[in-house]
């Protein structure tokens, strides 16, 4: 027994902070290249806001990947559906959206976002039961089924709302910028950053402070052992899938307001971006997903400003560079 006790101190766990520092290093490295301080601040704030929105859309997908090894190429459908559902609230209530009062604007915006999350989450329930349940463990079929689901969802949106782009104006009080010296910071971008941080903090809180969160983290690492402890991981997965779909819906609303328009192919357009973020971050890693989203947004914004011709391939180049450095992403959680 004594040998078991006399195991000595554990080696201090190495804190892997390099990925956390990457966005900071990238932002500081870009400052001299951009030259103008106000442009740098504007681009950095735009990157943070865009990164937070992408994170909200991608966070559910990374957990779905990590927890059940499910390749959901239809994740973009939840983004688009979320955005369209928001128009059901925001367009009929346009006078409230256009009112010059932050409280009035938020009183319309909040229920629109909640409804979008609820509908996307419910759609997630249907997709998991109908499309994904029959093809667990079969990657090729998962890709076919979920890609097919995305196409069906996109065509259904065309059928219901028509092919035209639907304008979705920002609420009046979220228009414009805060001016600090010669620096302009868009109000909506600040809101997007705030919402992104709240979502990130909420997910971290659940993952680290609740038994459900422990189960999710354990399931990402070894779902078989979680089942051997007596937990029905399929139910847990269904819950994670629904929450992830709901968050994608929230991300869709925020993205639509950011672009001030909704169209049926927006989910499809964002799918590649979201997948890049999930792969860069490491499958199943929320922290990695957060940093990956920020990096993708920074590369898009700084790259678009400095070398516009590179903008189209910048995200792919970023993914290649990260995977050459860390083949399983910034923070590898699973062995996949």
């Amino acid at each position: 027994m004594t040998e078991l006790a006399a195991a000595g101190a554990l080696p201090k766990p190495k804190r892997d902070i390099l990925p956390v520092l990457l966005p900071v290093i990238l932002a500081l490295a870009m400052a001299p290249l951009i030259g103008s301080g106000s442009s740098w601040v504007t681009l950095t704030v735009a990157s943070l806001a865009m990164g937070m929105m992408i994170f909200i859309m991608a966070s559910g997908l990374t957990l779905v990947f990590g927890l059940m090894d499910v390749l959901n190429f239809g994740h973009g459908a939840f983004i688009a559906v979320g955005a369209y559902v928001a128009t059901l609230v925001l367009l009929p209530l346009a006078p409230y959206v256009q009112a010059d009062s932050l409280l009035t604007n938020l009183a319309v915006l909040a229920p629109a976002a909640l409804l979008s999350m609820a509908v996307s989450g419910a759609l997630g329930l249907v997709v998991e039961r109908v499309l994904i349940l029959p093809v667990y463990g079969q990657h090729l079929k998962q890709i076919l089924m979920t890609t097919g689901g995305l196409i069906v969802a996109e065509q259904a949106l065309y059928a219901l709302w028509g092919p035209q782009i639907i304008p979705l104006p920002l609420p009046t009080s979220l228009r414009g910028s805060f001016i600090i010296g010669d620096i302009a910071i868009a109000k909506y971008r600040l809101l997007a950053m705030l919402v992104g941080l709240v979502v990130f903090a909420g997910i971290q809180l659940v993952l680290n402070r609740t038994k459900i969160g422990l189960l999710i983290r354990a399931g990402v690492e070894n779902r078989e052992m979680v089942e051997a402890l007596g937990y029905r991981i399929r139910r847990l997965f269904l819950g994670v899938f629904m929450v992830g779909s709901g968050l994608a819906g929230l991300g869709g609303v925020m993205w639509a307001l950011y672009r001030e328009q909704v169209h049926a192919s927006m989910g499809n357009d964002l799918t590649v971006l979201v997948f890049i973020v999930v792969i860069i971050g490491g499958l199943g890693s929320i922290g990695g997903c957060f940093i990956g989203a920020l990096l993708v947004a920074m590369v898009a914004n700084y790259g678009g400003f400095l070398v516009p011709k590179l903008a189209l391939v910048s995200n792919i180049l970023l993914m290649v560079a990260i995977l050459m450095w860390r083949p399983r992403g910034l923070y590898a959680v699973t062995s996949r």
Partner: peptide, 16 residues
């Protein structure tokens, strides 16, 4: 063994 390496000793037992 299949301990959950990302979780603490306490968290492993809390789940069990």
């Amino acid at each position: 063994m299949a301990v959950f390496s990302d979780l603490s000793v306490k968290e492993n037992l809390v789940l069990a």
